[in-house]
């Protein structure tokens, strides 16, 4: 299995022609390795969602290539993209986009049915995915009867149903209050983190989140800034082991302890850590420091 889940090279998308042409995505290139949670931020109309749509195989770019799991999806026909989206890409939406007439479990079961998994096996897998996200008591609820946070958790379970390597989330916390927003952020972080160590299904998964929500920076491994269709890397983000805030690697205070580098939001946090490192090390995951 390749370590690189996604590689976008020179991706450009132009809407319209002539004088009315709009360059929504302009020569964008980046790669996302397995286990990474990449956050793409930027103002409204900067081209974030268009980029996500292209990466998800829902829109063909004007030029450039997009490799998902080693396959250049820009060269696939519309018919060939269907199984690729089913197998390799999971989608989480701002407005959840659940199927309203179905129960929570059926919402997760349906993509499995599309992939040929049926009957008890599909039901059991859907149940497990929802139970893992704390929805054991909501399996038979119609999606319209769920709270916003529950809907988004169902949406994440649905996105993971066919064990895709790439999870794309468009403003996943925009319609949620802060508590549920944090829950969802934590879930997305967990999906990326657990895939670093997992073997088999779920291993080597990357998560790309498009959002305005600054809170997601806390859990993102890397942040890209998009403006006028172009992106710039504003660095890797790690968690401050003392206060828990997201810290850009290039901008934070770095401290080396027993051969590992830790990053802090401020000098105060770094001093607190150095005074008693063992108090904070238990909460630091492998590779975070």
């Amino acid at each position: 299995m390749s370590d690189e889940v996604l590689r976008a090279s020179g991706v450009t998308h132009i809407f319209g022609r002539g004088n009315t042409a709009v360059r929504a995505v302009d020569d964008v290139s980046f790669a996302v390795p397995a286990g990474q949670l990449l956050l793409i931020m930027g103002p409204s109309g900067s081209g974030k969602t268009t980029l996500l749509t292209i990466i998800g195989g829902l829109l063909r770019p004007t030029s450039g290539s997009v490799l998902v799991d080693g396959v250049d999806i820009t060269k696939l026909s519309a018919g060939q993209l269907v199984p690729l989206r089913r197998r390799s890409v999971g989608f989480v939406f701002q407005s959840f986009n659940l199927w309203e007439s179905l129960t929570a479990r059926e919402n997760v079961e349906l993509p499995l049915n599309m992939a040929g998994v049926k009957g008890r096996e599909a039901r059991d897998r859907a149940t497990r995915l929802l139970e893992e996200r704390g929805l054991k008591h909501r399996l038979g609820f119609r999606s319209r009867d769920l709270s916003g946070g529950e809907k988004q958790r169902v949406s994440i379970a649905r996105a993971l149903a066919n064990e895709p390597r790439l999870l794309l989330a468009d403003e996943p916390t925009a319609n949620l209050d802060s508590t549920h927003g944090r829950e969802v952020m934590s879930l997305l972080q967990g999906i990326a983190r657990s895939s670093r160590t997992a073997a088999g299904p779920g291993a080597g998964r990357a998560v790309i989140v498009v959002s305005h929500d600054q809170r997601i920076r806390e859990v993102a491994d890397r942040v890209l800034w998009m403006e006028d269709g172009r992106i710039r890397d504003i660095g890797h983000t790690v968690r401050d082991p003392v206060c828990g805030m997201g810290v850009e690697v290039d901008r934070g205070v770095a401290v080396v302890h027993e051969g590992r580098t830790f990053h802090f939001c401020s000098r105060g946090c770094s001093l607190e850590f150095q005074a008693s490192p063992e108090r904070f090390l238990a909460g630091v995951a492998e590779g975070q420091g």
Partner: peptide, 16 residues
């Protein structure tokens, strides 16, 4: 329409 769009997005075939 939107629900069918979601189905298409997540990989439902035309036959499905």
């Amino acid at each position: 329409t939107r629900e069918f769009g979601v189905m298409k997005a997540v990989g439902a075939s035309a036959g499905f």
